[in-house]
Amino acid sequence: MNIQSKYVGEIDIEERDIFSFEKGLPAFESETQFVLLPFGQDQVFQILQSVKSPEVAFVVASPFSFFQDYQVKLPESLQEQLMIKKEEDVAIFTILTLKEPFKDTSANLQAPVILNVKEQKGKQLLLNDSPYDRKHRIFPKELAEEGQR
């Protein structure tokens, strides 16, 4: 099936690659179907693209690519909702806020996107009382400052 995407124009996707978000994403409740698309040649960054609305697309990345000590405990209710049975069926992404210059880009570590890659189900998990920020820089401040010299 062909869909329009925000970053790569028209693209052909397989129905089996569509993730179902039962209640959409916060502020995008009517967007219930998304697909993961590559973002350029880099495998670190991907696009979580709405199947229905081309303008609804989020650049995402695994938080573990930038924060090795990042931890998320999935509530039992979420595991049941997404039909998660095994840890290896889970993929966790964080939505990025792209900045110019790119070294100032941040990640929303308070609200990771949880995907069951086996059942093609997803949900954005809001972590209450979290030690993480909504706008956590993905590159160390020293690296950003170094780039300004």
Rank of each mutant, 00 (worst) to 15 (best):
P140E: 04
I138K: 02
F139T: 09
F64W: 05
V72K: 01
D104H: 11
L126D: 11
L115T: 07
E142H: 10
S77V: 13
P112N: 07
T97I: 03
V90I: 09
A91C: 13
Q71Y: 05
K85W: 09
G122H: 00
E119S: 10
K118H: 05
K118R: 08
K123F: 09
P112M: 04
L109E: 00
D69N: 04
K123G: 11
L126P: 03
T94P: 10
V117S: 01
D104I: 09
E76C: 06
E88M: 00
E76N: 15
Y132V: 02
P140S: 12
E87W: 06
T97S: 12
T94N: 15
F139S: 03
E88K: 06
S62M: 08
L78N: 07
N128D: 15
L143Y: 13
H136A: 10
K103L: 14
E142Y: 12
P63H: 03
A107C: 12
F102R: 10
Q110R: 08
E100S: 11
Q81C: 07
S77L: 12
K73T: 11
Q120M: 14
E80T: 14
E76S: 12
E142K: 14
Q68W: 06
L109D: 02
T94R: 11
R134Y: 13
G122E: 02
L125C: 13
Y70G: 07
K141I: 11
K85V: 00
F139K: 04
K141Y: 14
I95Q: 14
A91G: 00
E119A: 03
E76L: 14
K123C: 13
A111N: 10
L126A: 14
P75N: 11
L115H: 00
I95G: 13
V72C: 08
R137P: 10
D129T: 03
K103S: 15
N128H: 13
K118I: 03
K141Q: 13
Q71C: 13
E100A: 11
P63R: 02
S62I: 09
E88Q: 06
F66Y: 09
Q124K: 08
A111D: 08
E80S: 02
Q81L: 14
G122T: 05
A91P: 00
F67E: 01
K103I: 15
